[in-house]
Design a protein around this nucleic acid. Structure first.
Lengths: 213, 213
DNA sequence: TCCCTGAACTTGACACTGTCAAGATTCTAG
DNA sequence: CTAGAATCTTGACAGTGTCAAGTTCAGGGA
């Protein structure tokens, strides 16, 4: 049990956690430094000992989100070694699940909430790591004939773009309801992937994520 | 020259224009109702005669953005009748140009800044119209063998997702600099489109938008 | 042991924001 | 011409990001 001391002990992480919580419950508009401070049980100016800015807290929250995505994707990657098609599908699905479940956290990461990423090295590093993972997946899919051959960087941009754009449009309600009413999100994903896949993906075989996912 | 009268005359549109201007110069963080009011030369509470909320102004700005995109895309569509491949490429390019040139306006439209689109019928209508246009393009591309056959709604989601995701990732600096340093945005787009296109798109032929675009 | 330096935190202030209520002004339908 | 609606102003309130000054506390050197 943490004693109530003058020094919090782990305020920085407590503020990040509080911020993520506020984000989940009230969305971007409800997120404020003072509210996070209140939630962590400290005074309104305490955060300035750990974050230069509100921007800095937001950047930390975004960094946390990217780390969580990396952990998810890496875990899925390990789960299906030697099956790049399954890796592609389940990694995309995992990405989408995160986006839909943690919508506002996802938005903080990809919606320009962090105005100058350059200023936050940890953020730059983790986003680079994520791109590397996507690139790695791309290379394997190319070797397996799932994706077209060519510069893997270019293929990675196309593939990731497809998946990311799909979540974004879904998240912002840009996809007509005449479509979303007729198909499940999983079906929509498979269909989207089928547009870049060189081998046809049979909906039957991949209609649901396998158990133990 | 507009006289300085008590009644502004066109305050609603003036506020939208002011908002767009602020967005372009200071980004989302700099946008406030009071600043827009100041810019339009009215008192700080005047906007409430035309917008119930700050959200309502943001929704109006988003609606304006979607209309502008629609106008762009429709114009490109007319420019190349009977050439669906060119339509696909130049529509995608035009979409991307808007996103990159009017980055913050674009973000307002696609980043959850409008929390309840449902409440803004004009916004819902124009986004539906845009999806219709994308769908129309998709059908033509399918007929020409450029996109895989099948439910055009599904194909539209995949195609639009690809383009939209590409802009979003570019805009938020998620694409590794090792990639963006080596290729122009136009090249990246062509490469991305090549991943969903059934017919290979020769970079040579489409490296630049044709004159008069 | 004492002190002292720096980090972590509090208190108080400032300008700015979204929003509401009350009043002033102008437009327009009858 | 007049009544009511639409538009706009003024003034207020709570909440916000941020800074400056002071308070508490942990750890190291004497």
């Amino acid at each position: 049990m943490p004693e109530k001391t003058y020094h919090h002990g782990d305020l920085k992480n407590a503020l990040i956690a509080a911020g993520i919580d506020i984000l989940a419950k009230e969305g971007m508009g409800g997120l404020s430094l003072r509210k996070a401070a209140r939630k962590a049980g400290v005074s309104h100016a305490a955060p300035y000992a750990h974050f230069t800015d509100k921007q800095a807290l937001i950047a930390a929250i975004a960094t946390d989100g990217h780390s969580k995505i990396y952990a998810r994707l890496a875990s899925v990657m390990e789960q299906y070694p030697g099956d790049p098609l399954r890796q592609l599908i389940e990694i995309a699905w995992s990405y989408i699940e995160f986006g839909l479940q943690e919508a506002d956290h996802f938005r903080v990461m990809f919606s320009g909430a962090v105005e100058k990423e350059r200023d936050y090295p940890a953020l730059v590093e983790i986003t680079g790591k994520n791109f590397g993972l996507v690139r790695q997946l791309t290379v394997r899919c190319q070797a397996a004939g799932i994706l077209a051959p060519g510069d893997p960087d270019l293929a990675a941009v196309g593939m990731w773009g497809l998946v990311h754009g799909f979540v974004s449009l879904l998240l912002e309600g840009q996809i007509s309801h005449t479509v979303t009413d007729r198909y499940s999100q999983r079906e929509l994903l498979i269909a989207a992937l089928n547009q870049i896949s060189r081998v046809p993906i049979d909906l039957q075989n991949y209609s649901t994520p396998p158990d133990g996912g």
